[in-house]
């Protein structure tokens, strides 16, 4: 049933789940949330099954008029959440009622926040996912970011019997300087001094940073003498760091499928949320890690999330 009306949509608000898998061979990028950690916790807070669609908010949050009694939760970037003009904590479940006004302000730390609704936002499933792919005009709410006057529905869902809150120790800080771990990429052999440059310099996030990719600015990374400047087009991954002709790295994200530039390294899955939580002007350093380390970190994160889940459900 009708759950919220959009009073103002914020900077860039889309409906996302974990992504649309199985169609990259047809040119459909995975889309989905950029910060899977914050997304998972948002759903946990309101009692939703994992991978329930939520709103991904960017830089500036929306204002929403609540139409039904339900639990909501805001995780990810710190954005200044208010219900009827009273400040409310993030990373906790919040009971809202018809007529309430939820306003989410300008980002104070991080870049993207996740707003979950008990029962999940109801939008049509397209090719196995609820995620919005704006470039292809599919998924989410009418294949586009939310606009003023949009009215969204959520599923029928039991209210929580008690408030749920994420323990302080699990809440990321979202600093404006981040160390991003990366594995040498599929075309690492195209670079010699370039690898050193990447792993020993600082890079700043430019204004060209969105769900397709983050363009960085810093010491130029040159391709080895005698190596071609481009490659035969091949698929990219979220986290692929490609080096185009201007020698400034681009971290490709979730709305990209194939590319023709050499990829020097790939950001590990566990650090993609860190990238997605930086904004233009922030500083990134890259640290080289091996595959084993990256896989161990994925297992760590799974265990961490499991620990939070156990704790929340036991409260």
């Amino acid at each position: 049933m009708t759950a919220v009306k959009v009073i103002s949509p914020g900077g860039y608000t889309t409906i996302q789940d974990r992504g649309r898998f199985g169609f990259q061979n047809m040119g459909i990028p995975v889309s989905g949330v950029l910060d899977a950690f914050a997304f998972t916790l948002a759903n946990l807070l309101v009692g939703n099954p994992d991978n329930t669609p939520v709103m991904e908010l960017t830089v500036m949050g929306p204002s929403l008029e609540i139409k039904k009694e339900m639990d909501i939760a805001l995780t990810g970037a710190k954005m200044g959440l208010r219900v009827n003009d009273s400040p409310v904590e993030q990373w906790t479940s919040i009971r809202v009622r018809p007529g309430d006004l939820v306003t989410i302000g300008q980002v104070q730390a991080g870049c993207r926040a996740y707003l979950a609704f008990g029962g999940g936002i109801r939008v049509p499933e397209i090719m196995g996912s609820f995620s919005t792919y704006v470039g292809g005009k599919i998924g989410g709410f009418k294949g586009r970011p939310l606009q003023k006057e949009d009215v969204l529905e959520t599923g029928d869902f039991p209210l929580l019997t008690r408030v749920r809150a994420i323990p302080e120790s699990f809440i990321p800080a979202y600093p404006s300087e981040a160390v991003i771990r990366a594995i040498p990429g599929p075309q690492a052999e195209y670079f010699d001094t370039g690898l050193k440059t990447l792993f020993q310099s600082e890079y700043s996030v430019t204004v060209k940073a969105d769900r397709m990719g983050y363009r960085l600015q810093g010491n130029p990374i040159s391709i080895k003498q005698g190596m071609p400047k481009s490659i035969v087009s091949e698929p990219s991954m979220p986290g692929s760091i490609q080096i185009p002709a201007d020698e400034q790295p681009i971290i490709l994200l979730v709305e990209q499928t194939v590319g023709g530039y050499a990829k020097i390294a790939t950001v590990i899955s566990s650090d993609l949320p860190l990238v997605a939580q930086t904004t233009p002007g922030d500083t990134l350093w890259f640290e080289c890690v091996d595959l084993k380390t990256a896989h161990a970190l994925i297992l760590d994160e799974k265990n961490r999330l499991h620990a939070v889940k156990t704790r929340l459900e036991a409260l």
Binding site: I183, P186, P235, T266, V267
Partner: peptide
């Protein structure tokens, strides 16, 4: 070739 911690590329030859 390693494409990060969740991707593997196998190349079957050069060029188009």
């Amino acid at each position: 070739r390693l494409a990060g911690d969740t991707g593997l590329i196998v190349e079957f030859g050069e060029g188009i």
